[in-house]
Structure formats: C-alpha cells, structure tokens
C-alpha cells in the first residue's frame, strides 16, 4: 500500500492521493490530478510552481530543504512562510503515510 498524502485546497477541501515511495510529492500530485500543483519544470526546482505549505506536525520530519530549493522558494506566487516547500523536492518514503500539505491560492 503506497503512502497516502493529503492535499488541502485553500477552501479546506481535502483530497488523499496515494504516492508510491520514491516519487516526489509533486509527481504524486500531478499524477493524481491535483490542480493546485503545476510542476512546470518537471521537478527540477526551477519554476517554483509546486509550492506547498507543510502541516506543522510534519515539518520537523522532513529533510531540510537544499540550497537550490531555499533560493527558488523566493519565486513562489503566494507568500512564503516557514511551512513553505517545493513539493518536487520532497521524496516520499513509507514514513510519509498521512503527510498533510496545504495548497496556496495560486502557483503562477
């Protein structure tokens, strides 16, 4: 059973998507038809269109963002907060079952 990830729209609507371990959260969202994630550059941390806000209880459990991601987070269309991550840079593992991320109003 692949880990389930919950994507929460700005209006509070939640959707669960199974994302196989080894994929990025962005890849899982695109494959699962989550509209709030664009992933224009294909997962290269080049476009900042896969911005998510990671739920507080999960933040410390994710690996620290690399420098490239840190810098590209300056490009997000919506406000960058402490919860901000580029979902293409979060690789799903079995431990991420139940991960909750909120989507910004806009990616562009």
């Amino acid at each position: 059973m692949a880990p389930k990830i919950t994507f929460v729209d700005p209006d509070g609507t939640a959707r669960n998507v199974e994302v196989p371990a080894g994929r990025s959260v962005m890849q899982g969202a695109v494959a699962g038809g989550v509209d709030g994630i664009v992933g224009e550059c294909g997962g290269n941390a080049m476009c900042a269109t896969c911005h998510v806000y990671v739920a507080e209880e999960w933040r410390d459990r994710l690996a620290e963002p690399a420098m490239v991601e840190q810098e590209m987070l300056e490009f997000t269309a919506c406000e960058r907060t402490e919860a901000s991550r580029l979902s293409c840079q979060i690789t799903v593992t079995e431990e991420f079952d139940g991960l909750v991320v909120e989507l910004p109003e806009s990616q562009l």
Binding site: P20, R23, V30, A31, G33, G42
Partner: peptide, 17 residues
C-alpha cells in the same frame, strides 16, 4: 519500470475531465 509514467504532462484521464 515506471520511468514512462513519470514523464506524462498530465494524467491521461484529465483530458476527458
């Protein structure tokens, strides 16, 4: 084996949707 799925631009079902 899943290299091919990873390069889809959009989910196949999304065109009809």
């Amino acid at each position: 084996t899943d290299a091919d799925d990873l390069i889809n631009l959009h989910p196949v079902a999304s065109y009809a949707e």
